[in-house]
């Protein structure tokens, strides 16, 4: 039984068509010409309870629109949607009890109140039993190191502190599902790591289903096994990260460190990208040459002190897919 299921989900926005120039502005005031834009079209997906899925797409791809429909605040134009057995837009309030939400760019904490008072208000909103509340507070304060700023008004918190507060706020009522929208945006490395750690713990310890929307693919690479790629409102890939890497990450980089510099640095079937004296970097296609062959040739030629092979970053792969479009594995593979 999937916990989240959408079937042929579509959302079309209608907006007033604006015309240019001063005359156009006046015409816009009186005329009512509309343009329709499909923000999400025919999205079908299914998530099992306890999954942690990266939902990836460029700006305007339809990620937020999908999340808003899953939370029940947007009504789909067509298609069906089910979250933990409920249709979100029909039962917004019951659905709200099952979900937690964190927006990196927007806080749900109460601006004028000390952080801990926001938590107490949320306890009342979700009617969390007192002992459960105490347990969760204790655990989250520990994990997110919130002790020093629990009594500080939210408006005086740093971004990193505020985000930690927002995470605790979203998890206080033990939601079954948590939606994270750009949760690490603008955070420094340490804060990012703390947040990722928390997400991982929540997912494994509590079995919370996590949908993670982000531009920072390092988040996804560190946390999830499955990604869903969306572009122009359509899902273009849904599957394990490894598969997309295998299919698109056909290039590897071989890095050799030599005992002494060399001038003649050519290797067959590999392209020399840089030669910084003792460190040589080669790019090779794993379909035309195998890494061990390449290494054997190199070892025979140079006095090597260190060897490493760099895998392509998910980020560069995804960038390529956005530019070139995704090719189905059964269709002709694209030349690299």
């Amino acid at each position: 039984m999937p916990i989240i299921r959408t079937d042929d989900l579509c959302k079309t926005f209608r907006s007033v068509k604006r015309e240019s120039g001063p005359g156009g502005a006046l015409r816009t005031l009186f005329s009512r010409a509309y343009v329709e834009k499909a923000a999400v079209s025919h999205v079908t997906m299914s998530l099992e309870a306890g999954e942690l899925v990266g939902y990836i797409g460029p700006n305007g791809a339809g990620k937020s629109t999908t999340i808003k429909m899953l939370t029940g605040i947007l009504v789909p134009t067509s298609g069906s949607i089910e979250v933990a057995g409920l249709t979100p837009y029909r039962s917004r309030r019951e659905n709200a009890r099952n979900i937690g939400v964190v927006f990196g760019q927007r806080s749900q904490l109460y601006w004028d109140l000390p952080l801990v008072e926001s938590f107490e208000l949320l306890r009342a909103i979700y009617s969390v039993p007192r002992d459960r509340y105490r347990q969760n507070m204790k655990r989250f304060t520990e994990m997110l190191e919130m002790e020093p700023f629990l009594n500080t008004p939210v408006r005086q918190l740093s971004l990193g502190q505020r985000m930690r507060g927002d995470f605790a706020a979203a998890m206080l009522h033990d939601p079954k599902i948590i939606y994270l929208d750009e949760p690490t945006i603008g955070l420094d490395v340490v804060a990012k790591e703390a947040i990722r750690e928390f997400i991982r713990d929540v997912n494994t310890e509590r079995g919370t289903t996590v949908i993670l929307t982000t531009h920072d693919l390092a988040d996804v690479e560190r946390l999830s096994r499955r990604i869903i790629l969306i572009d122009n409102g359509t899902i273009i890939y849904d599957g394990p990260i490894e598969r997309i890497k295998e299919q698109y990450g056909t290039h590897r980089t071989l890095v050799l460190t030599l005992a002494e510099p060399t001038h003649d640095a050519g290797l067959p079937n590999a392209e020399l990208i840089s030669n910084e004296g003792r460190v040589l970097r080669y790019r090779f296609d794993r379909r035309t040459v195998r890494a061990d062959e390449l290494i054997r040739i190199a070892m025979a030629r140079y006095p090597i002190t260190d060897i490493s092979i760099e895998e392509p970053e998910l980020e560069s792969i995804i960038r390529r897919i956005y530019v070139e479009g995704y090719a189905q594995p059964d269709s002709k593979e694209q030349p690299v």
């Binding site: 605040i73 939400v101 909103i125």
Partner: peptide, 13 residues
């Protein structure tokens, strides 16, 4: 401000 969205994601009237 757009914060009505987060308000609507709470189980309240």
């Amino acid at each position: 401000e757009g914060t009505i969205a987060t308000d609507l994601m709470k189980p309240i009237s």
